[in-house]
């Protein structure tokens, strides 16, 4: 019995592992969309052909290969487990939504490639791609969380044998489809060292950004002035102190001696005053405490 359970788990893991590897491939494409969707707005000719292949790949591969395998599994899970039935149904329905959104994107890509000068269309496409990537990420995360981790518990060996028999299609990206998706295959196999990621901007945002930059420059300028003035003040004080210390004591400068003596007296007076004030304060505190006591 133990061996049998182990084998079932191994079989299910192999099946699920294949689906997870599909998700990993999709993730690479989703990252590409996140990095480069904004480039569609400013330089569509650089990335439009790549996006056309990417969306076509995701939509076709999902429809032909990935989603059918998932739906077979979800439907078996829904039959076996009441608690997972609702999630399985909802996620299977989302496949239809993804396919529809993908086809809309393909139509939009077609439109943009026919009218490349139309900025509004390019912006709509960039936003649509980002929305598509967000919803796919959320969908993938829910599938992995809710169903993939539970299927091996719910399905039997017989279920898995049936599932594996039904899912015999091939991954179009892994099996010599470089002729159909040459740019995407190159992107995935070669990768890129550096990607510059730009994000959505708006006229208001750009105006505000420019204002913020100016305020920032002003603040930086004020900080420099403040630092300079502070440094100069310190330097001036140091110079004055140095000059006074260096001043020779000669009879002709009797007034300076008087000033020094006066300053010394003032210093002594200040020390005496502080001492007196501390003593007085201590005394006052004691008497104050005493007077606060009722009938002391």
């Amino acid at each position: 019995m133990k061996n049998r359970t182990h084998t079932v788990r191994e079989t299910s893991e192999r099946y699920v592992r294949g689906l997870l590897e599909d998700h990993a491939r999709f993730s690479r494409v989703l990252t590409m969309i996140g990095r480069d969707a904004r480039r569609l707005v400013d330089a569509p000719s650089d990335v439009l052909p790549l996006f056309a292949e990417a969306v076509d790949y995701v939509v076709n591969f999902q429809n032909v290969y990935h989603h059918p395998r998932e739906e077979i599994m979800f439907s078996r899970v829904g039959e076996k487990s009441e608690s997972l039935a609702a999630a399985a149904k909802k996620l299977a329905q989302e496949h239809g939504g993804t396919a529809y959104a993908g086809k809309e994107l393909l139509a939009l890509i077609e439109h943009v490639s026919r009218a490349p000068g139309e900025r509004a269309g390019r912006e709509q496409l960039a936003k649509g791609l980002e929305r598509f990537a967000r919803s796919m990420r959320s969908h993938i995360a829910q599938e992995e969380d809710l169903l993939y981790s539970q299927v091996w518990i719910e399905l039997t060996r017989r279920d898995w044998d049936k599932l594996i028999g039904q899912a015999a299609a091939l991954d179009p990206l892994d099996h010599d489809h470089s002729a159909k998706y040459p740019l995407l295959v190159r992107y995935v196999s070669e990768g890129r060292t550096r990607s510059d990621v730009t994000t959505e901007s708006s006229p208001f945002g750009e105006a505000l950004g420019s204002a913020m930059d100016r305020i920032g420059t002003l603040l930086d300028g004020l900080a420099v002035i403040d630092r300079t003035m502070s440094r100069q003040r310190k330097e001036a004080c140091a110079l004055a102190r140095k000059s006074i210390r260096a001043m020779p004591i000669i009879p002709a400068l009797q007034p300076m001696d008087s000033v020094r003596a006066g300053m010394q007296s003032a210093g002594e007076f200040a020390s005496a005053y502080r001492r007196w004030f501390r003593e007085w304060n201590a005394l006052y505190s004691r008497s104050d405490t005493a007077t606060r006591r009722p009938h002391a």
């Binding site: 592992r17 998700h23 990993a24 993730s27 690479r28 989703l30 996140g34 990095r35 990537a133 967000r134």
Partner: peptide, 13 residues
């Protein structure tokens, strides 16, 4: 964070 999530998913399918 979305890109990091994609990266982790790619590394650990």
């Amino acid at each position: 964070f979305d890109h990091l999530g994609d990266f982790v998913r790619r590394c650990c399918p």
